[in-house]
């Protein structure tokens, strides 16, 4: 059994996670051995996940939590059920 590039594209995430079946993992490895284009795709996919993992949380805007508390106190306890 050989995998096409399209098959590899579908399975990249599972391959990275190590959750592809042993048989499919072996087929995918065989494909990568012969296909530099899919290796490049895998490398760039890895880089995207790395970039996402390093994406910093945004800073809270000054006074945001105070504004939210104030609105809650105005809208919440008395007017709600």
């Amino acid at each position: 059994m050989t995998l096409s590039c399209r098959d590899v594209g579908d399975r990249l995430m599972l391959f990275r996670d190590g959750t592809l079946s042993p048989k499919e993992t072996e087929w995918l490895r065989q494909h990568l051995h012969l296909c530099p284009n899919c290796i490049s795709l895998l490398d760039s996919y890895d880089e995207v996940v790395r970039v996402l993992e390093r994406l910093k949380p945004v800073d809270l805007p000054p006074g945001a939590l105070d504004r939210i508390r104030q609105r809650l106190e105005e809208d919440g306890p008395s007017s709600c059920c």
Binding site: S4, S40, L41
Partner: peptide
């Protein structure tokens, strides 16, 4: 659909390159 263009023979229609490390 998978956001990768694929040719009729199953190969990608696009030549990928590894990205520089960010």
């Amino acid at each position: 659909a998978l956001p990768l263009a694929v040719q009729e023979d199953g190969h990608f229609a696009h030549a990928f390159r590894p990205f520089p490390s960010t």
